[in-house]
Design a protein around this nucleic acid. Sequence first.
RNA 1: GCGGGCAUGGCGGAAUGGCAGACGCGCCAGACUUAGGAUCUGGUGCCUUCGGGCGUAAGAGUUCAAGUCUCUUUGUCCGCACCA
Length: 805
Amino acid sequence: MYQENYDPASIEKKWQKIWAETHAFEAENDYNKPKFYGLIEFPYPSGAGLHVGHPRSNTAMDIICRKRRMEGYNVLFPIGWDAFGLPTENYAIKNKVHPAEVTQQNIDHFRQQLQKIGFSFDYTREVNTTDPAYFKWTQWIFLQLYKHGLAYKAQMPINWCTSCKCGLANEEVVDGVCERCGAPVIRKVKTQWMLKITAYAQQLLDGLEHVDFIEKVKTQQRNWIGRSEGAEVDFALTVPGEKVRVYTTRPDTLFGATYMVLSPEHPLVDKLKEQITNYDACVAYRQEAARKSDFERAELNKEKTGVQLEGVRAVNPVNGKEIPIWLSDYVLMTYGTGAIMAVPAHDTRDWEFARKFGLPMVEVVAGGDINQEAYTDIQDGVMVNSGFLDGLKVAQAKKAIVDYLVEKGYGERKVNYKLRDWVFSRQRYWGEPIPMVHCDKCGMVPVPEDQLPVLLPNVKNYEPTDDGESPLSAMTEWVNTTCPHCGGPAKRETDTMPQWAGSSWYFMRYCDPHNDKELASKEALQYWLPVDWYNGGMEHTTLHLLYSRFWHLFLHDIGVVPAPEPYQKRTSHGMILGENGEKMSKSRGNVINPDDIVRELGADAFRLYEMFMGAFDQAIPWSTNGAKGCRRFLDRVWKLQSMVCDGEGFSKDLEAEMHQTIKKVSEDYEKMKFNTAIAAMMTLVNDFFAKGQVTRGELRTLLLLLNPVAPHITEEMWENQGFGAPIHHQPWPKWDEEKMKTAEVEIAVQICGKVRGRIMIPADMGKEQAERELIQREDVQALLGGKTVMKVIFVPGRLLNIVAK
RNA sequence: GCGGGCAUGGCGGAAUGGCAGACGCGCCAGACUUAGGAUCUGGUGCCUUCGGGCGUAAGAGUUCAAGUCUCUUUGUCCGCACCA
């Protein structure tokens, strides 16, 4: 017997307990079964707790995973904690508690919240990036990168957050401010650990061809990697024996190069100190440029600045003409060679610069008006004023000139990428220590693998220092160690890793999370990887997704993981906005707390609404009324129990609809069109109500279809109805295309494209027969009103269009 | 600036080139009620002389047929942003 009223609180508690006790959703280590690895981005356990955005991704993947289990797959759907990071550290500093303690509390809170929503995670495989048993392997991967020359220390200007007092990766700087705290970012020269992600630029690009990522993600990654093809060309200088190399994507315009621009930081300035007659002015300009942040340099792009390098000129290799050399900060030292040949007639930036400083322009591609603007078209233009290139189209000229340059030894083909190496150091306490030791005698020495993990010292004060050094540097007992190589006195590296480190390989650890010999066993990695389906936010496309692909590609190259690409499929969910349509934030006061919704409406209604509210990949404002509507639907589903009539199959009049709904829901789940899948089930339930009864077979099928979205209520009703083994052990329902058809269908009748009526016709009526016979029908003739038929178009199952006069 | 997406009732949104507005919210009316912020039933794009006419940001085009395809314009969101 069942309770008359649907009471989610008691039902949900009951089933969550049963699932835990029966280990219902734990992945099996049976490597013979077909597997499915569903992944969501593991949360950062912040003090604020879960927000309504987490369940959107989680519920979607939970639906897919629950469906896969019913389809017979061995499913791995894990959860873990990306727990290193600044907010925890800052909270710890402020409240004088150890970050590890804060982390533990937050994790416990998060887990409890997730469990209340009924996600089918395998909690036995939890990973925690701050657990030494985990970060031992994060450090191990770093050592492998180091051994293969992909981790190096470099003195370089980095992005420095003035508030976090910490270096940031380029990817962490958004609009000139720190992505995390919003404080301004300045340039600061420091010695930093770097990871050579640029060595993998081409592989990261090529790999995208073989994976099923939504197009938006691929595009963003491609843009970020920023591959361009061109040539490097040497320009001789008027100083004997000296030359400058430039990079250009438009070698075809070489005859139009009327001056050259060097980045202010270009080493040539100091090298030619003797020859440059206005050296002081050049240095002054360089200092001015250095004061600006990258952001300011970009912001001020409307007005170009620069200074001419006097006393030295460059020689255009194709026509021997001497051209002036300028310094300008619109040329970046960090891209290409830090020097360009300027072709003002055909490059917008050069055009502006030439305009401002009155430099000459030479048109070498005909088709535009270079007095008005730079002509940058590369399709239709034809070469002029270009010696042996004259008359060629741009594409042909490109090839011809590069062949010529290579032959003459003036230059070579060159591919460049915008991608920069990854700044891997952070001057903070709460991160993985970088396992390196500095020895006066031996230099940089990696900590031997058998001494991992390098633990964080347990101390009282981990506030960042104002001098930009890690708080670890003040902990002399920890810092002072012995050199693993010579045994002499040495100092530990005091920088820690960025948060992206732990999250770059967590999905590997899930495969074999308790292994203390390897990061995971070969067999487990072979079986589970790649991740079959990974859902996460668009905000991680150029950071986490690229970094973790890089690590995975590297680990594949050194034989640790079997496949090159870690993720077979990547989808992305839209953000949930506040009820007012603005981004949810504490300061706007429009934050919805999942706990409140679960308490008031139940976890199932909450899950249902999260999936029903709109297209999954789009940003949608929250509506508590909408959520209540989903609760109403579940109330109605519950009430079906009082309408059940005999019959293990489908009733005649609903048979077609039942099969159509099974198909619709099954396919829509796969396409992540959860809103329309739920709408179809709502329609079905409405039809049961209209009829006043539902057969056992119909109810059975509805419960199976609804189970992935609303697992608790469906388990309970399944048990109430005595349908047998728990619903999560049942096979996914199948549809029969034949049974989806009805004997008769209603089609629209159009006269000249306008709908004039509807008629019932046999469903199997052929096109020819329909076009011949239907216009004879009395009801069709009536709609025609005596007009002369010119043409008849019949679309089976849809409409009949009669063109008539 | 460059690249890409989007634009449909009061709201969230449906719609392989083939009956626009599924489903839900809200609203209106009715039923049951001492009561209704519960539940149930019906209605709900706009105009209408009740025949019908008009409707998917605006304008043109292709088609028997356009929310859907093409072009132009506007708005909006996202990505990149001096990357040579």
